[in-house]
Design a protein around this nucleic acid. Structure first.
Lengths: 226, 226
DNA sequence: TGGCTACCTTTACACTGTACGGTAGCCCTT
DNA sequence: AAGGGCTACCGTACAGTGTAAAGGTAGCCA
């Protein structure tokens, strides 16, 4: 079965549009967990042959660019006049949520080339909020760099974990730990046993811990970053 | 040209080993910038047919796991009894360097499943250093989470930049800025003009800025993270 | 009427991972 | 010495990929 999930083909009205293609591509990537669909599968879902897509996108990377830009469009941008710290926190949370909603997106980051309009708009809003919160240009650049780095990196790690519920975590953790000499990696073993497998542990909570640490640091340095 | 770069095939002595395959795979991925080689290309370089590789690796993902583990093996682990802050700084720098030396590795992170021995050894050393530096188990978990998140995320962003030298940066930046209304993204435009394109700007320096911010935060919280 | 354009299809090519089955040489046991 | 099993490799084949090249068709404008 090559095109299992979902409706075989909705009869379209009128010609395809870039936006319609991107919408369907994102929807397909979100289900199926198998990442971005192939050109043929995407086309079939749209009731069209693969080569038709090349009339709307120069090539596959161009389509991926468009998909990533759509994800950026979903991130709640900070209002320009908002208090910077709270605004940055909300933006970080919103960004992580978007990346988790579209787990295929973060793996595409490292091959994207041209930022789309939603992406530019987003970055512009972030910088604007920091600037009006009292950050210098250099300071805002530093802030964006740490924050975005942390958000991407944390989420990348989170998505690469081979489990989703705490119960699965427990299974995975001791299936990894089993088969190890046990005293070869004592610190790791201790952390898994006493911390990770503690009932109620939820890795997602870690996000806020690191985020607040970074926001504190930004607040403390804001003045001195001239 | 399908197998352009490098020697056609070195005559091997004796049978292939896992390690030899991984060594060649990493070397090929490092050159060529085109990411991990295909099974056929890798096999050809080893003087062997593609299917021979499946006698040493269950499938392609297993080979990728091995490659990632080799990258972890290159990261300088912190000595257990070292002063934690300096040790963490060195480890972060070493990790970023390894990821930049092997730019294909970070894109593989989100699909890896079983951590290899070098990976486990590395994490064990990091946790051990933090623990003997006075971090509680929970504190060490927090520290690892922020630090690794930042390192991955920063490097991911850095690698996705479509330039390498400051000169290329300048070209890219204003080729993006050109064609925009200019007053649509004023804050972004300002930052590019006044900061990024300032002579001597080097994005790589940002790494240390964020890293020190995080290390400060960790130092400040170490005691209270019980 | 003729031509131009936008949109889509057909065909083809080079490439991918890998399932399945075979073969040549070695070692161990009877 | 004969047989059996094991390791290491090869050949073939299949279903899938992105996309270049070329062709078709419908609608619009001169």
């Amino acid at each position: 079965m090559t095109t299992d999930p979902g409706a075989p083909r909705p009869p379209r009205s009128g010609p395809l549009t870039k936006e319609a293609v991107l919408h369907t591509a994102v929807a397909m990537a979100d289900r199926s967990g198998a990442g971005v669909p192939s050109m043929r599968n995407l086309a079939e879902r749209l009731g069209v042959k693969a080569m038709a897509l090349y009339h709307h996108f120069r090539n596959r990377p161009a389509l991926l660019d468009g998909m990533v830009d759509r994800v950026f469009g979903e991130i709640e941008p900070p209002p320009e006049d908002a208090e910077w710290r709270e605004a940055m926190r909300r933006r970080a949370v919103s960004m992580r949520e978007a990346l988790i909603r579209h787990p295929w997106a973060i793996g595409l980051m490292d091959s994207r080339t041209e930022p789309g309009r939603a992406t530019l708009r987003h970055h512009n809003a972030v910088i604007g909020c920091l600037r009006s919160g009292g950050f210098s240009i250099a300071g805002a650049a530093h802030a964006v760099s740490v924050l975005d780095g942390y958000i991407y990196g944390f989420t990348l790690q989170e998505l690469s974990l081979p489990f989703e519920t705490p119960a699965e975590l427990e299974d995975t953790a001791d299936s990894i730990m089993r088969g190890l000499p046990g005293d070869e990696f004592p610190h790791l073993a201790e952390m898994v046993a006493d911390h990770v497998m503690r009932p109620g542990y939820d890795y997602a909570e870690e996000f806020g811990v690191g985020l607040d640490l970074i926001l504190d640091g930004l607040q403390r340095r804001r003045e001195s970053w001239r």
